[in-house]
């Protein structure tokens, strides 16, 4: 196996409004290494002050979302082999930077929560009477769409890639609206069709989406917020 040297060009900063700089780190690209493996190699062998977040390393938790060569992606799923000799690594856009590649996910989850993301059963209390699960035939209308949208791992890639989020800090964003749709279309949810309308059809909700579609292009879980928002608009039209 031919081994080569790869340069990681990493955005570094002390967070907040402090100035951003880039630093180059050269690492040996061993077989099947991902960008996350490379970042960990930097920490373990060269510079333990580099800050970034990770957990499962298998593309399931969404902790390591960042911009790699300008595109939002999960660092653990970007193989070095698919990139050139220099790889630019930056934090997600539109979220406050804590340090280096570590961003504050609080605004993301605040908007997610504002879209009323929690399923509401007939009796939501965990300690109250338990019902039988709903019978849901697989071919049930729009279940195929819902099944795609519930795969969201809330990594923030779509949020970062959306130019409307970047321009309008009030916009709820693709992940939050996608979740709202998944619930609005879930026949098991007990809240009525108008329930989430107020939360998502307001001034900075679904009508602020400009149908750009970057969200679909970057989502590591194959979720399509663009479609979910369009369907939410159609749903919101019904009284």
């Amino acid at each position: 196996m031919i081994e080569r040297s790869v340069t990681l060009r990493i955005a570094r900063s002390d967070g907040g409004s402090s100035p951003r700089s880039t630093r180059d780190y050269s690492i040996e690209a061993r077989p099947k290494m991902s960008v996350l493996d490379a970042l960990l190699a930097v920490v373990e062998e060269q510079d333990a002050s580099l800050a970034f977040r990770y957990s499962c390393r298998a593309g399931m938790c969404g902790s390591c979302a960042m911009r790699i060569d300008g595109r939002e992606s999960l660092a653990c799923r970007e193989r070095l082999e698919r990139h050139g000799p220099t790889i630019t690594i930056e934090p997600l856009r539109s979220l406050p930077v804590i340090r280096d590649l570590l961003v504050d996910m609080t605004p993301f989850f605040a908007k997610y929560t504002a879209a009323e993301p929690a399923f509401t059963g007939a009796d939501p209390s965990m300690v109250a009477k338990v019902d039988e699960p709903a019978v849901v035939p697989p071919g049930e209308h729009l279940r195929d769409v819902v099944n795609t949208e519930i795969d969201c791992i809330s990594c923030g890639a779509c949020y970062s890639a959306c130019p409307v989020v970047a321009a309008n800090s009030n916009y709820l964003g693709p992940a939050a609206l996608n979740r709202a749709y998944a619930l609005a279309a879930d026949i098991r949810d007990a809240t009525g069709p108008t329930a989430r309308r107020a939360a998502v059809a307001g001034e900075d909700g679904i009508h602020a989406c400009r149908s750009v579609g970057n969200c679909v292009a970057v989502c590591p879980a194959g979720v399509t917020p663009l479609v979910a928002i369009q369907l939410l608009r159609k749903r919101a039209l019904r009284p």
Binding site: F119, G121, A122, V130, D131, I150, R188
Partner: peptide
């Protein structure tokens, strides 16, 4: 299923 909304 019925309270957390997990879809099996």
């Amino acid at each position: 299923e019925t309270k957390a909304g997990v879809f099996f």
